[in-house]
């Protein structure tokens, strides 16, 4: 077995760019992004998988990057908050968060927005949540569903009302 401190060659595809890194196996995806690549938009709030501040998208699905070892993501497509806007400007979620004041300090915000982006896709894919009725066919994008599905992202500033309004607004824009 390799020494735990041996360096591994890892290639991370982040926001459409390839990063070739030499990383110890113990380095989390979050620390790889922040400390090795220099993408500091993704935040650390607990390093324990409890707050969601470190949420990023891996092949379109949301994960807590503090709870993931970077070496496991070799070759995978990762999207961080820095990669959500495109040539046309801010992502509808980003615009809606500004409009509805879906934040105060802004520290949980990158995680909230990445989480919401993947959540909308999960919802559209028909994935049920803990509050979905068992026999439900068409799940309604209700406040209850939004709140349940966003409860893995803590906001100590308490911007939840604005966050939910922003998500609802962006969902409509994205559904047009």
């Amino acid at each position: 077995m390799d020494s735990p401190l041996a360096a591994h060659s890892v290639t991370l595809h982040v926001n459409g760019r390839e990063h070739k890194l030499q990383l110890e196996a113990r380095v989390s995806l979050l620390d790889a992004l922040r400390e090795h690549i220099g993408l500091t938009g993704t935040k650390k709030g607990c390093n324990q998988g409890a707050c969601g501040a470190c949420t990023v998208l891996v092949n379109g699905e949301r994960i807590n990057s503090c709870f993931a070892l970077a070496v496991q993501y070799d070759g995978m497509k990762i999207t961080t908050i820095e990669g959500l806007a495109d040539a046309n400007g801010l992502h509808p979620l980003q615009q809606a968060f500004v409009k509805h004041d879906g934040f105060q300090c802004g520290y949980c915000t990158p995680g909230q927005i990445c989480s919401a982006a993947a959540m909308i896709e999960e919802f559209r894919g028909g994935a049920p949540s803990a509050v979905t009725e068992l026999e439900a066919k068409d799940i309604e994008f209700s406040d209850l569903e939004i709140q349940e599905r966003m409860s893995g992202n803590l906001c100590r500033c308490g911007a939840y009302v604005g966050i939910n309004e922003a998500i609802r607004d962006a969902f409509e824009v994205l559904s047009r």
Binding site: T40, G41, T42, L90, Q94, V98, G106, T109
Partner: peptide
């Protein structure tokens, strides 16, 4: 009015203490 630093906060461009390289 919308928070003036909103665009920085929603794009990850707002630099907090632990973010300075």
């Amino acid at each position: 009015i919308d928070r003036l630093d909103g665009p920085q906060k929603v794009t990850g461009a707002a630099s907090f203490t632990a973010d300075f390289p």
